[in-house]
């Protein structure tokens, strides 16, 4: 039990007549970056609220670092940093003052942590500018700084890159990777930008209609979303011979519809085309294709849009 940062056992949450979470069983291991993927209303934020104590499960049990029960959970939450949906900020205060409120309430004695955090998220030069005058991206950065203020062991970020420009997204991605690598920080990150999650996370959790529908490692997802060269020809048997003898590869698959999936030469279609042409094989289709994370996710939830 203690090996897991977070464990839930059949956790459910209902709001009057809506079942937001349905018997969720999850185990998050230390030192990993979990991408939490689901549509709007799938239950991601509800789950995060339960973990952070903002709401209470209707049923089931929740463990943080192996501890359960309201009192123990409250104590363990001191080890968590969280940014949930849009950052909650005091608009009439500066970025430094917002951080100071959190420093005081968390009982962090070292005041220098405020400047360190402002530098870390690129807000060191905001000076006396009130937070209500910040752009959405600046607010998001400040929200991340607030979540990191206590140097948490477990960081929960709900849609952290909303409103960030491309450079900001890359910065935050690198920051998260560094925190994970250097400090062993476990991170649970939900986002609508699936490609971004793909670039950041080591593990993926798919949620739909309050139920966990799949958990995958990055390697497993890569396998499922593998890119390949699709070869269409009326003579697939001859084409396979060419692949084996001329291109010296057995990394292909003959599909039931007689197309060939070649998992090599993705960047070198010319060589494949030349080899097949030399063998006088008629090629009706030759292109790189495969599942994207978006397609895979849509397939999982039954083709509905709005990831």
């Amino acid at each position: 039990m203690a090996d897991y940062i977070l464990e839930t056992k059949a956790v459910s949450k209902d709001y009057k007549q809506t079942l937001a979470l349905d018997k969720v069983d999850l185990k998050l291991e230390k030192g990993k970056i979990y991408g939490f993927i689901g549509q709007n209303g799938a239950g991601k934020t509800t789950f995060i609220r339960l973990v952070t104590g903002l709401s209470f499960p209707s049923d089931g049990e929740l463990f943080l670092w192996g501890k359960s029960g309201e009192k123990d959970l409250q104590a363990q939450r001191k080890r968590i940093g969280a940014l949930i949906e849009s950052p909650a900020l005091y608009g009439n205060m500066t970025a430094a003052q917002n951080l100071e409120v959190q420093r005081i309430q968390r009982g962090i004695p070292d005041k220098s942590v405020i400047n360190d955090m402002l530098k870390l998220v690129g807000l060191a030069d905001t000076g006396r500018k009130k937070v209500r005058n910040f752009s959405l991206g600046m607010k998001q950065r400040l929200g991340i700084a607030l979540a990191l203020l206590n140097k948490p062991e477990f960081l929960i970020l709900d849609e952290p890159i909303n409103g960030l420009d491309p450079a900001g997204i890359v910065e935050i991605r690198n920051l998260l990777k560094t925190l994970n690598k250097e400090y062993g920080m476990t991170i649970l990150i939900s986002s609508h930008i699936l490609s971004e999650l793909y670039n950041t996370a080591t593990n993926f959790i798919f949620i739909d209609h309050g139920r966990i529908i799949e958990e995958l490692t990055h390697e497993e997802l890569n396998e499922k979303c593998k890119q390949y060269v699709e070869v269409k020809t009326p003579t697939p048997d001859k084409a396979i011979l060419v692949l084996s003898e001329e291109l010296k590869t057995d990394n292909y698959q003959l599909m039931p519809d007689k197309t060939i999936r070649l998992f090599e030469y993705l960047d070198d279609l010319e060589t494949v085309a030349t080899a097949l042409a030399k063998a006088q094989i008629l090629v009706t289709g030759l292109y790189v294709t495969g599942e994207t994370l978006e397609n895979y996710f849509l397939e999982k939830i039954g083709g509905k849009a709005d990831a």
Binding site: T52, G53, L54, Q74, A75, Q76, R77, K78, I80, A82, I84, E85, S86, A88, L89, Y90, G91, V101, Q102, Q105, R106, L146, N150
Partner: peptide, 13 residues
Amino acid sequence: QKTIAFYISAGHK
């Protein structure tokens, strides 16, 4: 503004 959530998620009773 949801700022009260900070206290709760920080583990205060």
